[in-house]
Amino acid sequence: MTTKKMAIIASKGTLDMAYPPFILASTAAALGYEVQIFFTFYGLQLLRKDLSDVKISPLANPAMPMPVPMPVFVQMLPGMESMATMMMKQKMKKKGVASLEELRSLCQEAEVKFIACQMTVDLFEFEKSDFIDGVEWGGAAMFMGFAGDTDVCLFV
């Protein structure tokens, strides 16, 4: 049996959008898939050693369940983003949802390949030393080399 393959593009850097790539990648790897994730633009933040800047914003996010109804002008006050992030993380912990750090290391253990977009690094002038070990740096053509031959290919 040939190995199935999955490729994911992770382009978002918020807490809620960080989960789908890592959940699907780790699960697919557990099912025997060979998996690559290409991190580009804001998605690159998910490869930082320190994930504390990965947050969730209640602003412009009307589907986010709130403990109390909150008008938009309150949601934009300083500190609301940090508070929403803290509350979301507490809720996740209580419900047994893995932390991003845990899911990310489970992906790496399962040999999910992380490709970081070189162009994004140059664009935002990121320091490569801020990123976790085991990341490969590459571009669109490199991703297509793998993606062109996959069974599942997703853009997140």
């Binding site: 959940i23 780790s26 699960t27 557990a30 419900k95 047994g96 949802v97 893995a98 489970l106 399962a110």
Partner: peptide, 10 residues
């Protein structure tokens, strides 16, 4: 027990 998707599978 107490763990959510995808942890039981992983």
């Amino acid at each position: 027990s107490g763990l959510s998707c995808p942890l039981p599978i992983l």
